[in-house]
Lab assay of single mutants.
Amino acid sequence: ENVVSAPMPGKVLRVLVRVGDRVRVGQGLLVLEAMKMENEIPSPRDGVVKRILVKEGEIVDTGQPKIELG
């Protein structure tokens, strides 16, 4: 899985990584606000952040790609 998608609709509060960052499985990639709760979205695997496809403040839909890992 190279693309991390939104598990639920919500607002991107914070992006916790930058392009080029090495990430580990379970590491937080971003914080999504859904139903007035903050949810940290974890990396599904070890890898390197290739692209960030969302911006802080953006509203995302379920299944929308957010971060691409290499």
Rank of each mutant, 00 (worst) to 15 (best):
R18D: 08
A6S: 13
D21T: 07
K36Y: 12
L32D: 00
N39I: 15
L13M: 08
V3C: 14
V12Q: 00
L16F: 05
G63I: 04
D61I: 14
V31E: 01
I67N: 01
G63C: 09
I67H: 03
I52G: 02
A34C: 14
P7G: 13
L53K: 03
Q27T: 08
Q27H: 05
V15L: 13
V17H: 02
G26E: 03
I52V: 10
E68D: 05
E40M: 14
E40F: 12
I41T: 03
Q64G: 05
G63K: 07
G10A: 07
D61V: 15
E1N: 14
E68R: 06
G57L: 06
L69K: 02
D21W: 10
V48H: 08
V48I: 13
V15P: 01
E38Q: 11
G70C: 15
G26N: 07
K50H: 10
T62P: 10
V12R: 00
D46I: 05
V49Y: 00
V4T: 05
V60T: 11
P65V: 10
P42R: 14
I52A: 02
L69M: 06
P9K: 12
L13K: 10
R22A: 11
I41E: 02
M37K: 12
S43A: 11
L16Y: 06
I67Y: 02
G63Y: 08
V15A: 00
P42S: 11
R45Y: 14
E38R: 10
K55L: 10
V3K: 06
V17F: 00
R18E: 11
N39K: 13
L16A: 01
E58M: 10
V60W: 05
G63M: 08
E1P: 13
P9L: 08
V31L: 08
V60R: 01
K50V: 14
R18L: 08
L32K: 00
L53Y: 13
M37Q: 13
L16C: 11
P7K: 13
V15G: 01
K66E: 15
G20N: 07
M37E: 11
R45D: 04
I67G: 01
M8N: 07
N39P: 03
M8Q: 08
I67R: 01
V31C: 05
R51N: 10
V49W: 00
E1T: 14
L53V: 04
R24S: 11
R45S: 10
V19D: 03
V25W: 10
L13P: 00
V54A: 05
E40G: 04
L69V: 08
K50Q: 10
A34V: 14
R22S: 11
S5H: 13
K55G: 08
R22T: 11
V17D: 02
G20S: 04
V17Q: 00
I52Y: 03
G20E: 04
K11E: 03
G47L: 03
T62Y: 12
G63W: 09
V17C: 08
G26V: 04
R51T: 10
V12N: 00
R14A: 08
P9S: 12
P7Y: 09
K50D: 06
P7A: 12
V31W: 05
N2S: 13
P42C: 14
R22F: 14
G26Q: 04
Q27A: 05
V4F: 06
I59L: 13
N2E: 11
G63N: 10
E1D: 13
